[in-house]
């Protein structure tokens, strides 16, 4: 069994709004802590890739436009790159 496949098959459920908000707050904290880095967006993406379970990253991509509107610039860029896969 291909693990990646298994992960994808589980991404059907839509995360709750509260959970999405929590994850966005987490993302914002990562962004804030990486803001002094030369390329904050890349640093944050790398952090998510290394430490966040795919479900969490997928949940971020489920953020709707309204939710994204409240995100910081860095977070928005990160979300865009996540959307792009």
């Amino acid at each position: 069994m291909n693990p990646a496949e298994n992960l994808r098959s589980e991404a059907v459920a839509v995360p709750s709004a509260a959970y999405r908000a929590r994850l966005l707050a987490m993302l914002e904290r990562v962004c804030a802590n990486c803001r002094a880095e030369p390329d904050p967006v890349a640093t944050v993406l790398e952090h998510l890739r290394r430490f966040w379970h795919p479900w969490l990253r997928q949940a971020l991509t489920a953020l709707d436009a309204q939710e994204r509107a409240q995100a910081s610039e860095t977070a928005r860029q990160v979300l865009e790159r996540l959307d792009a896969g």
Partner: peptide, 22 residues
Amino acid sequence: VTISPEPGLRLPHMLAEAREGR
């Protein structure tokens, strides 16, 4: 066996995902 190359769930996220039903 084959080992997943993706990070697993951290404990707080296991709990959060439990509430999410996954």
